[in-house]
């Protein structure tokens, strides 16, 4: 087991290098010379060349990549073009809001998706099953921004149950319980908008996994020996059908972080996604690249965790 975990971690290292290499290559695509945007346009050519030399921009790309990689490894993601702020600090400041949003969405999608999937599987080909399957299809087909806008339109503008946007009430000095309620009311709609499509995927996955497990011999045996339907379903079938659901946990991470770009923009949520969109409109490439590097590393770690979890719960996985 330990050996397996170590091997998986070692395997992830070249992928991590690949991520930095791809990020660096995309950065080279960025139009314009970074020097020209950074400094006085009236600078002479000689001065420009000297400045480039001092920053190492005249050296071969492979040397530049190495320099950049060393910086990254020491935790320095570079500086913004206009204000010169460190990118890592900017991302760090936005990280908690995004983590709050994505983890809430993750929890909602599994807490609701798994039971609905189990229900659907145990009532296979019934009317509620068809309804849920159709709902899941709509969930995976709806564009995130349309879902978000629809939720704002119905629940915030027409019914007035929730605020339209933001992280918390502005100008309100809530404390204690009212503060908590205010935060939850702001979180509710964006988390739901992000969670629903993922929940649909979790549900479909649980349903098909459960249906597959229910055809196994041991299920028939436990039914034959007179166990109640509930015990068979929740004690015997559920455990084994949840194993493949771990895969969807691994897939949820890139899905939720990618979806956060859209959701945060629609709900004006001050997280990494809206930072990214602002950086894109402002052509702040260092921020865009920093975000790319950060999220893809996060996804890599998510996959690693999913793989290790898989090995923990499924003894059939060989550790060699």
């Amino acid at each position: 087991m330990q050996k397996y975990i170590i091997r998986r971690i070692v395997q992830a290292i070249p992928i991590l290098f690949g991520i930095t290499l791809l990020t660096f290559m995309i950065m080279q695509l960025a139009p314009g010379n970074p020097m020209v945007t950074m400094i006085d346009p009236s600078i002479s050519m000689e001065d420009l060349a000297r400045a480039e030399q001092s920053l190492g921009l005249d050296r071969p790309l492979i040397v530049q990549y190495w320099q950049w990689l060393k910086q990254i490894l020491s935790g320095n993601l570079g500086y913004t073009i206009r204000t010169g702020q460190p990118v890592s600090a900017l991302i760090g400041a936005r990280l908690p809001a995004t983590l709050l949003l994505t983890s809430t969405a993750l929890v909602i999608s599994f807490i609701l998706g798994v039971p609905l999937g189990v229900f659907s599987a145990s009532h296979k080909y019934s009317i509620p099953d068809y309804g849920l399957t159709l709902g899941a299809f709509v969930g995976i087909s709806i564009p995130g921004f349309f879902l978000g806008l629809g939720l704002i339109y119905i629940f915030a503008l027409k019914l007035g149950w929730f605020p339209t946007s933001g992280l918390m009430g502005i100008g309100m000095n809530y404390e204690g319980w009212p503060y908590f309620i205010d935060r939850v009311r702001h979180l509710f709609l964006p988390a739901l908008a992000l969670a629903l499509p993922n929940m649909a995927a979790v549900m479909r996955f649980t349903r098909s996994s459960m249906i597959e497990v229910l055809t196994h011999d041991y299920i028939r045996t436990s039914r034959a020996k007179g166990l109640s339907a509930k015990v068979v379903l929740f004690k015997h079938a559920l455990r084994n059908s949840l194993i493949p659901v771990i895969t969807i946990f691994g897939l949820s991470i890139p899905f939720l972080f990618g979806g956060a770009y859209i959701t945060e923009q629609v709900f004006n949520w001050p997280g990494m996604g809206s930072l990214g969109i602002a950086a894109i409109t402002g052509r702040e490439y260092p921020i865009v690249m920093g975000l790319n590097l950060f999220t893809s590393t996060l996804v890599l770690m998510g996959n690693l965790i999913a793989d290790i979890l898989y090995a923990f719960v499924d003894p059939r996985i060989r550790y060699s």
Binding site: L22, F257, G258, Y261, T295, S296, L300
Partner: peptide, 16 residues
Amino acid sequence: VVICFPVLFLVITVST
């Protein structure tokens, strides 16, 4: 490596 980048992220980045 490519699969680690969330699709929407990567597409937005390159399109800018």
